[in-house]
Each structure stands twice: as C-alpha cells, then as structure tokens.
C-alpha cells in the first residue's frame, strides 16, 4: 500500500507543480506590459543567456558540420553521390540538429544558469525583498528572462546552422575535394525556405519557450537551500532535455511526417 500512496502523492505533487508553473507564466506574461522599463532589462538578459552562449554554440556548430561532412562523405562516395553532401549537411542541420543540439546546449548553458540564479535570489531573500518593495518579481525578474530566452535561442539556432553549413564546406569542399559549385547548388535545389528553414525556426521557438519556462520555474519554485537549488538545476537540464527530444519527435511528425 505504501507505493500506491507514494504514486498518488507524486501525481498530486506533479499536477500541483504544473499549476504553479502555469500561474507563474500567466503572472509574468499577462502582466501589464512595461515596455520602457523592461526593454533594458530584457536586453541585459539577452546578453546573459544569448551572447554568453554564443561561443559554445559556434564551436559546436562548426564541429558538428565538419563531422557530418566527414561521415556523409564516406557514405555518399560509395554511391558516387558525394555531390549530395551539401543538401545532406544543410537539411540535417536546418531540420534537426540545429534546433535540437542548440536546445540541448542552451538548456545546459543558459537554462541551468537561470535556475541557479533565480533559486539563489530566492534563497538570499532577494525575491521577497522585491515583493516587500512593492515590485512584482514576476515582472521584474521572471518576465525579462523569459523573453530573453525566447528571443535568444532561435537566434543561436540560426547561427548554429549557418556555422555548421560552413563547417561542412570546410571539410567537404576544402579538404575532401567535393566541388564547391555543386555543394552550394545542389543544396539550393533541395532546401526549401518554408519547409526546411521556417519549420526549423518554429521548432526552436517552441524549444526556447519550453526550456526557459522550465528553467525559470525550477528556480522560482526551488527549495531555498543549497541542496534544493542543486536539485532544481539538475532537474532543469534533465527535464528540458527530455522535453526537447519528445517535442522534437511530435513536431517533426507534424511538419514532415504527413504528406
């Protein structure tokens, strides 16, 4: 009977957490917009979550593009189809790897930092102190971070894909000797703006929203002790990675699966 009770308790806790997460989102987003006050805050957060994640995104994008070109070449050359290297690299990056890998890196780099930051603000009573100063922490702390995440991550994903395609060019064309003209032209004939690029960007917006939401909520809802914050930070990375992979399957099925 013990385990039955614990299943029940966990279910109730989970549902309760969803409820609190949703209320937090409402409080942050539905709040009366204070554009003049919030824009500088949001810009600062874009710096923190976006610009500071740039290095890891560029380096990862470059290497992933290079590895894909290398792997793709060894497979394609067996069929005499190494000309299709360009579309292979571009399509996998734009449709799949760009959004997903960026999202996973973003969850690890920016998501965990957001959780820890907000959790520590809670633990050091900064959030309470804002409330006592009659400043709503949802608007002042949560909303700018939420917007910054939603704005930054798609930007990072675009940069990731572009750098990856260039990395593929470096390995495929400059090193392995695929014809540069065919790398680009066959890519152009198979990549479609709406179907591939726009769908990929839609994916990143969904991922960005989910990761930032989870990260902020985990920090906001963390138990304000060092143990609670470390648990919340771990959970942010685990939950948002799982959410990204699960949502990626659903979105891919919706976008590309049905003819």
């Amino acid at each position: 009977m013990q385990w039955l009770a614990s299943i029940g308790r966990n279910t109730i806790d989970t549902v309760g957490a969803f409820g609190r997460a949703f209320l937090m989102l409402l409080g942050a987003v539905i709040a009366k917009p204070q554009l003049i006050k919030n824009t500088p805050l949001t810009i600062k957060q874009i710096y923190v979550v976006g610009v500071q994640s740039l290095l890891i995104i560029v380096v990862s994008g470059l290497f992933i593009g290079m590895v894909m070109a290398l792997q793709g070449y060894t497979i394609l050359v067996g069929y005499g189809a190494e000309g299709s290297l360009g579309p292979m690299v571009a399509l996998s990056l734009l449709r799949e790897l760009g959004p997903v890998v960026t999202a996973l890196l973003f969850a690890g780099r920016a998501g965990s930092a957001l959780t820890a930051e907000i959790g520590l603000m809670k633990a050091t009573e900064q959030l309470s102190s804002l409330e006592m100063m009659a400043v709503d922490p949802l608007r002042r702390i949560v909303a700018p971070r939420l917007w910054a995440g939603i704005i930054s991550m798609p930007m990072l994903a675009i940069i990731f894909s572009a750098v990856g395609i260039l990395g593929g060019h470096v390995v495929g064309v400059d090193w392995l000797g695929v014809d540069a003209g065919s790398y680009w032209s066959i890519m152009q004939s198979s990549v479609d703006w709406n179907e591939d690029v726009v769908n990929g960007i839609i994916k990143t917006f969904v991922f960005a929203f989910v990761i930032t939401w989870i990260a902020i909520f985990k920090g906001y809802d963390a138990i304000p002790t060092s143990e609670g914050i470390s648990k919340a930070t771990t959970e942010t990375v685990v939950f948002s990675s799982l959410a990204v992979l699960g949502l990626d399957f659903i979105l891919t099925a919706l976008m590309f699966g049905i003819e």
């Binding site: 874009i46 710096y47 930054s152 930007m155 675009i158 572009a162 152009q188 479609d192």
Partner: peptide, 30 residues
C-alpha cells in the same frame, strides 16, 4: 551590454542571410 547584444543581432542576421541566399533555392515556392 548593448553593443554586445547588437553584435549578436548582426551575427544572427548575417547567418540568416547566408541561409537565405546560399543554402535555399530562391524564386520558386517562396
């Protein structure tokens, strides 16, 4: 901070432009 974020935006636009002009077929369907 503002300058760095500005550079970030410029970099994103450049990347988007690269995708739009070099990687995607123009004309048809868009």
């Amino acid at each position: 901070v503002e300058i760095m974020v500005g550079l970030f935006v410029v970099l994103t636009l450049a990347a988007g432009l690269l995708l739009a002009l070099k990687a995607v077929n123009q004309g048809m369907s868009n």
